[in-house]
Design a protein around this nucleic acid. Structure first.
Lengths: 196, 196
DNA sequence: ACTATCTCCAACTGCTTGGTTGGAATCATG
DNA sequence: CATGATTCCAACCAAGCAGTTGGAGATAGT
């Protein structure tokens, strides 16, 4: 049987995404990644160097994707609340992305060089620019700083996934608490926030 | 010299708070806690059982405190934006509390029994009640679900501390980005959100 | 002052884990 | 098909870690 090193690499990366999203860097076990990928552990060191570099690779790929996943074009910025809704949808279908983002926040913090920092910064700044245009077009309250607004959008959109334990304590046993209601709630909140 | 076991306990707990806030459960080292408290490691096992129970104790104390730190009385709920400002202040002066909250989110999640769950739930529900009263008094938009509003308040208030790397990428090199401006921004956002 | 009990600590144990190695199987090339 | 490079893997290693132990110093009751 022929070797398929690309496939092995991909298997490892996918397994690593799962493991790191679930347990973070410190909590992740290299053995588990290898085992769940059905690949020998040693491959990780040949392909990716070591655990730290594997983590960096995972963050690099996934967070790049996260920043660009729901594009905020100038047209999309005209309806910022709906955009928040779409990010919310993205978090629902890709729960490990938000987790990686938070692991990055806690384990790396804002003090050191980040994976894919330049590229992600550009992504964010492009979005800020779209918001600026929407402000000039009168579709978004021009009194708010566009960057602050962008940050608020990010946080509103992940309101339901960032602190599940708080959600649990607040929402325990509410029949009306459905995914659709949650989406509608963040969209409504965003709408009030950006209204001119 | 007389023993002062209470003091040793407190030294250990304080050191544990620092260590767990900085590194989470998996990342925290029992040796480091003991060393930074200036106490022998074995004391931890005598006083707190094991690492896990120490972590639970730390979360229990600190998160109880966090939930009750900035009380949301019915009167305070009348000016919800200013309340958000006060929570923001609290996060600025107690940065490890928010970190513990996020470590709890990532490492425990919403699926298992939480430390001090009942007490914290009561804290939160009391706050929701205050918001409900403010809504009836016409000081807060009555169309929004009070619990959702509470969740949004929590998230807005920690907008600047939860994802420092995103803040960094968004705000890099902005002279106008001061603590006062940040506070004013979250207060303004909250004001628009809750306005009837 | 004697003894039982509590507080403290240095050194130790055993397991987990990141990382390595030596060699077998597979492939590409001349 | 011979040779050298590459992919794969089981077993191994050393370090770091949570948790333990045995005994020394301090205290309180009698």
């Amino acid at each position: 049987m022929a070797w398929d090193t690309e496939k092995t690499k991909r298997l490892l990366l996918d397994a690593a995404v799962e493991e790191f999203a679930a347990s973070g860097f410190q909590g992740a076990r290299v053995d588990r990644i290898a085992k769940s990928a059905g690949v020998n552990k040693e491959r990780i060191y040949q392909y990716f160097g070591n655990k730290e570099q594997l983590f960096a690779t995972v963050l690099d790929c996934q967070l790049k994707e996260l920043a660009g996943a729901v594009p905020l074009t100038p047209e999309a910025a005209a309806d910022l609340p709906e955009h928040v809704g779409r990010i919310y949808d993205y978090h629902v279908t890709h729960p490990h992305f938000a987790r990686l983002l938070h692991w990055e926040a806690l384990e790396l913090g804002g003090d050191c060089e980040l994976p894919a920092e330049e590229e992600r910064t550009l992504h964010y700044l492009a979005k800020v620019d779209s918001i600026l245009q929407a402000q000039q077009a009168g579709e978004v309250d021009p009194r708010l700083d566009a960057r602050v607004l962008m940050l608020a959008v990010v946080h509103l959109a992940q309101m339901w996934s960032a602190l599940p334990q708080v959600v649990k304590m607040l929402m325990s046993g509410s029949a009306a608490d459905t995914p659709e209601a949650r989406r509608a709630a963040v969209v409504a909140l965003a709408a009030k926030m950006v209204a001119p």
